[in-house]
């Protein structure tokens, strides 16, 4: 493992208009970790990334540390980071090789060495064939790989990626997501990437920091994030959980359409949620919870069923594609093992 450990201490960013994009926050990224910054648009995740890069300055009092050394006052060009921009920002006046070698040229590296390193990095990114191409002759996926190669060519201490896949079309995005995860592990360098797509965050990151309204609300491994969300908002945002409402009594959650097993002990003001994959359609005679189907959408590998009357709000259940659930029908519901998510009741900032 290489690269630097990143630490943020009390880092905040208030824009001239007075809007606070990032509230004072603390974050530690250990050396070699791939961290995903996940959140809805406008949550401050890109600003946080730019604060790490040095493209933004934190409000007074905040500190950015690389390997324990304070870099808060260093401008981006002195921080030795690798940055991949959302639009890739390749230099149109240079070839692919010129782009990838630019960081080394600026550092005064000898020509022969630059050529060798460019070749090496392009090979690493499976882009050797592109070396002499002009930037405007590249496809979206190729641009992304060149931008990545350019960022790592200077052997940065930290690799930062701003929505690295969002400029690609949907089909390509899924393929390149896995490719990017492989590449980032091949570089073996501390990396932070920003995304609004939870599948992307869960697939690529070692750890995901979920951001909301300028705050990091939870930072955990993808599995822990999915299994134990910190609050109801995280549960809804990651995995699309729905609030059940209801009250607990004798190890059961009492709901308008019946009850679900909810063995305690629970905190006095716990909230219960369930994801589309947490419930299963069941025969009404065996089910403890019943609701009415309002909509059934066939998605190929599953049938997405919306159900009213079971919980306090509407529920979404992913059923087998051949399940019998016509709109209007009353269906029984059964909890899958581990399907119930319990979170503490927390005040939800707007």
């Amino acid at each position: 493992m290489s690269g630097a450990a990143i630490a943020l201490e009390g880092v905040a960013r208030t824009f001239p208009g007075g809007a606070q994009a990032v509230r004072p926050c603390a974050l530690v990224v250990p050396q070699g970790e791939i961290l995903g910054l996940l959140g809805p648009s406008g949550c401050g995740k890109t600003t946080l990334l730019r604060l790490i890069a040095g493209l933004e300055r934190p409000d007074p009092g905040g500190r950015v540390l690389f390997d324990g050394r304070d870099v808060t006052r260093l401008p981006v060009e002195a921080r030795h980071v690798g940055m991949v921009f959302q639009s890739y920002a390749l230099f149109p006046n240079m070839t692919v090789a010129g782009n990838v070698g630019y960081g080394l040229r600026v550092r005064g590296v000898r020509r022969a060495e630059i050529a060798a390193r460019v070749e090496e990095v392009l090979a690493l990114c499976d882009a050797s064939a592109l070396a002499s191409r002009r930037v405007d002759q590249l496809s979206g996926g190729q641009r992304q790989r060149v931008a990545l190669a350019r960022a790592v060519a200077v052997r940065p201490r930290v690799l930062l990626l701003d929505e690295p896949l969002s400029a690609l079309d949907a089909a390509l995005r899924e393929r390149l997501r896995d490719e990017l995860a492989t590449l980032l592990r091949r570089f073996a360098i501390t990396a932070v990437f920003v995304t609004h797509d939870q599948a992307e965050a869960l697939a690529i990151a070692d750890r995901v920091a979920v951001m909301r309204a300028g705050r990091i609300v939870q930072a955990d491994t993808p599995r822990a994030l999915y299994a134990a969300p910190a609050d109801a908002w995280v549960a809804r945002f990651v995995g699309g959980a729905a609030d059940l409402g209801g009250v607990v009594s004798d190890g059961s959650l009492l709901l308008p359409g019946g009850r679900l097993p909810a063995p305690g002990p629970h905190a006095p003001r716990a909230r219960f949620l369930v994801r589309p994959g947490g419930l299963d359609l069941a025969d009404r005679s065996e089910a403890t919870l019943v609701g009415a189907v309002t909509r059934a959408t066939f998605l190929g590998d599953r049938l997405r069923v919306e159900i009213d009357g079971a919980a306090e709000g509407a529920l979404v259940v992913d059923a087998a594609p051949d399940a019998a659930a016509a709109p209007g029908a009353r269906v029984g519901l059964r909890l899958r093992p581990g399907g119930l998510i319990v979170v503490p009741e927390a005040e939800e900032a707007p």
């Binding site: 060009e77 639009s87 920002a89 200077v154």
Partner: peptide, 11 residues
């Protein structure tokens, strides 16, 4: 954006 990219590369 291009300037930021160049700056990030140390220029």
């Amino acid at each position: 954006k291009l300037e930021e990219a160049a700056a990030a590369l140390g220029a």
